[in-house]
Amino acid sequence: MAQSNIITAKDVTIKYQAFTAVKEVSFTIQKGDFVALIGPNGSGKTTLIKGLMGLLPLNGGSIHYDQTLPIGYLPQHTHSADRAFPATVEEVVSTGLLGSKRFPRRITRDDMKTVNRVLDYVNVRALRKKRIGELSGGQQQRVFLARALVSNPQLLILDEPTSALDQAMRDHFFDFMKKLNESGVTIVLVTHDIATAGEYVDRVMYMDQSLIFNDSFDAFCEEQKLSPFVHTHPLKHTHDSGSEKA
């Protein structure tokens, strides 16, 4: 049975004035995919994600996705440095429900039950009445994940979700993502931690301005001619820019 594409990106180019951050990138994301988007610092990963989410205008190419599809998004560096910010964990997570509501976007008691159920799911329910700024980086990350999950998304886009987590928490996080993916949620994950993510994802997309590699993790390791756990050396340009291998 043919799988349905939920994202189709064709020749996407995004520039910051004269600087081209993303150059002619083409790929598809299919329903049920679990994809890791990797690349060195400044390679355009976050820019591409922002283009996907409509946060940055495209300078070329096109992105098509099902507009009715509920999307959960975890932006990069969301940590609350402001300890005085008064919103509680519950309040922050409940904002994840607003996108699916019509004006005046009231949060009901049933919504709060959903919020607490998701907080339970990510194991931070005990912190629900705390100010978000009082939480550690790892706890905040789980709260933001809860905010992304609370609207029951079918597509989850996560930008560096494990950057504030220690190794044990990362393993726990990826186990959790795998379970979500097995329940039918499509996941696109920007990460530097390919060593851990590689065990879980179906596909690796490696980019450095252009999309250089787009295939399974095993093929990625083969490509590198290195152990899967040695990931500090970026891939050499073994494919044409913008080519789609998958």
């Binding site: 922050v92 904002t95 607003l98």
Partner: peptide
């Protein structure tokens, strides 16, 4: 009062709010 929840969301995280459709 009418826009309270949207204002809270935007005040805390404008990027997330935009992606949510606010």
């Amino acid at each position: 009062i009418l826009f309270y929840n949207e204002f809270v969301s935007m005040t805390y995280d404008e990027t997330f709010s935009r992606v949510s459709g606010i």
